[in-house]
Each structure stands twice: as C-alpha cells, then as structure tokens.
Design a protein around this nucleic acid. Structure first.
Lengths: 212, 212
DNA sequence: CCAAAAGTGTTGATCCTACACCCATGT
DNA sequence: ACATGGGTGTAGGATCAACACTTTTGG
C-alpha cells in the first residue's frame, strides 16, 4: 500500500521523555528496542504521526500505548532533524516531555516488565539514536519549568504534603531548597490550597494540600 | 520523479515570522501569495524542508531567499500540525521567529517590492492558512524573550544608543519602560559595553554601546 | 521519653520602583 | 538662547536569603 509524493517527504514522529519520581529521585521511562537498528538498546518511547492526528495527539496516544496512562502534563519542547539521525529513513522527531504521578505500585509493575523500565536520570544507559540529546534538552526544559511550581503537581498525587512538593522541586531542579523559604514562595505563588486532612507517617502528621 | 513510502508521510515546512523595527514600531515581513490556495492573501515567508538539511538550515535558507539577509536571531518556537491546515496536502509547519536590524534603506526597498511588504504588527491584514495563529504565538514568545534584553540586539545596528535599545524593548514588549530604571537594569545585566563614540542627532549626542 | 519530621518569624541585605533635575548639543 | 533628547541619584517599600527553635506524633 504505497504512498507517493512529488517531492521527498520525511517521516514525522514524536519522542516522549516521561518522568516520574521514585524514592525521591527523578526517573525517566525507557524502552528496550526489539528491532534494528539499535536492537537491545534503550530508547525514549515514541512513534510515528498518524495521518489524521495532531502532534499533541500523537504524543498522548503513544504515551498511552506505552504506559497505559493519560499524561497530566505534556509539553512540546523542540524538534530534532539531523538528516541521518535514523539510519533507515529520514525522521523528524518532535520531542515532548511528560510527567506522571509517582505511583509506587504501578511503577514497580512497570519495572518488572521486560521491555520498559524506569531509570534514574543520574544513572542512564546508553541510548539509541540521538535520544541522549533529546533527553538532555528535556531535563533543561523541565528544570526551568519547575520554578513555576505548578508543573510539579503532575508528579504528585492529587493531594500532597509540602515536603513532597519540595522533594519534587529539588529532584527536578537539582538544587536544595530551604524549607521555610520554599513554603513562603509556595504561599506567595498561591498555587496550592490547604485541605482539612493530614498524611499519617512515621512521625508528626503533615497537612495535605491540593492544586489551587 | 515520484517518491514512494510504505506509510503516509506529511510534508514538513518552516514558516518564519521576521520582525524588524520601522519608525520605532515592530513590523513583520509578509509575502503576497502568487498561487492557490489563498491567492493574493498575505502569508509568512517559509518553505519546504529539503532532503539533506536540518530545520534550522531550512529556516535560514528560506529567509535568505526571501529577504537576502542572514538572520541574526532565529528561534524555533513551535509546530503547527492541524491535519487540514493546508488544503493541498498535509503539511507540518515548524515555526521560527527571526529578527533583522532596522536598516531603513533596505527596508524601504523591500516595501516597494510588489510581493513582499513590512506590516506593523498593530495593523495586520488577513493572513493565509493558520498564519494568524503562528504570528500570535511568535509575538508572545518574542515579548517573553525581550526581557532578557540581549535578543533585542538583533533588531539594532552593531552599535546603538540606550534610547534605541529602550525603544526596541518597548516596541517588542508593548510596555513603557522608565528611563533610569531601564538603564540600571541594562547595567546590572552587563550585556552591553560602552564605546568611545557618540551618535550625533538633532541634540545632545548619545553614547554608543555594543553587545558585551 | 525520644527520635524524627512538621511547622513557624525575624532580621539584614538586596532589589525594584517611583520620582525631578542638570547637561550638552544643534539650530 | 532655547528646545530637545541625554544623562544621573536617592529614598521607601518589597522581596529574598539566611538563620534556630517548638510542636506533634509513632514507636
């Protein structure tokens, strides 16, 4: 079923850097390639643009197919277009970053799956294609966005403690934050609303907040 | 000379919003379409990605072909991928914004050309395709970047007065700036270096600065 | 009762904003 | 000489960073 054009057309795909928090550290979802090229190498999830969908839909669909989750935050952050970045044919990659809430149960299940695994961003394997470049850019963009706090909600459950929020902030920016100043900043931004409930852990319960 | 693929491939093009200053106002370069669809309508310059070039090269090349100028600032800021945005065939548009120095002589020449004209962004004609959306996004991105000052150098000659820089800032952000505070901000950012020369105008000469 | 995380205020330094006047030149 | 844009300083308020201690619970 061939498709013919008067001029050469590249293939267009989306690649998605999906991040979550595991044990307080930022992790990225990678899949093990099951075919050539780069057989057995790790790569970002992604796939080709379908004829009647927009790029955003493509990224959301691919992510859904790979992880079974509807992304809470999906941001287009750049294109990768080196003519030889894919040895098979020319592929323009539109890069997205997505954040998933840290759901330890589901994440553990993903970990056990043969072909998809979470990797801490501090300990990445070699990646296929130019995915190391894409991932590096994704981390820069994510760190920049984290300063507005609200994107971080996508990494957390619907209700969260301020310590969790601060942990997410630190994991994403790579910088330590001062507890009292961090809370003041959050209060000033007005992006959270306190609830009447508390998280009960090993020690003093912490008040739960939600996105404002 | 047909090109055949196993799966449907969209065409990929770049569209470029080229800005400059004319009489202190922000202007954008539009071309009059010489063919269907949208014959006679105004549109952003742009064109199709060639087989062996990157997107950035494509934008720079198209810009060079349209204006004869090598852009001093060329920023990719988004993709436009609605399946029906071009009635002929599916085209993914990668949008760029570019800034040109305000060179009144050359600009006047362009103005007289039949099919390419500068328009003040405050008085735009109807645009072909979804170029109104692209241009609106470009203006947002540009206003955001202007706050870092240095992108504005691309709108100015190599050496400029602080009043010119402030004028560019105001034209791009749409906000008035306070003269003394603006100069303090520029000094703090450290992005300009003063020269020994002065611009001689109608009144007291103004010191010329250059990018630091 | 003790370990561990939750939560809270103040102070000094810095930065931003608002404001009014003198300067140097061309005409 | 004067009109015009070029150029400068300061004071008050807001904001940010750095600092230590008390509270509450589970074990």
């Amino acid at each position: 079923m061939p498709f013919t054009y008067e001029y050469p057309h590249p293939a267009v795909a989306t690649d998605i850097a999906v991040f979550t928090l595991r044990l307080g550290a930022l992790n990225v979802l990678l899949i093990e390639r099951g075919g050539e090229p780069y057989l057995g190498a790790w790569a970002l999830p992604g796939g080709f643009l379908q004829p009647d969908e927009e790029l955003d839909q493509c990224a959301r669909r691919e992510l859904e197919e790979e992880t079974g989750v509807d992304a809470e935050l999906l941001v287009q952050f750049g294109n990768f277009s080196a003519p030889d970045r894919d040895p098979r044919e020319r592929v323009i990659s539109v890069a997205y970053l997505a954040l998933l809430p840290s759901d330890e149960l589901r994440l553990e299940a993903s970990t056990d799956a043969a072909q998809a695994r979470w990797f801490p961003v501090a300990a990445l394997p070699r990646l296929a294609f130019d995915h190391d470049k894409i991932l590096a850019r994704a981390l820069e963009v994510l760190a920049g966005r984290a300063r507005q706090i609200s994107p971080l909600f996508a990494l957390l459950p619907p209700r969260f403690t301020l310590s969790q929020l601060q942990g997410a902030y630190e994991a994403v920016t790579g910088e330590e934050a001062e507890k009292r100043n961090f809370r003041k900043m959050v209060a000033t931004l007005g992006c959270v609303r306190e609830t009447e409930d508390f998280a009960h852990g090993a020690h003093r319960p912490a008040r739960l907040y939600e996105a404002a």
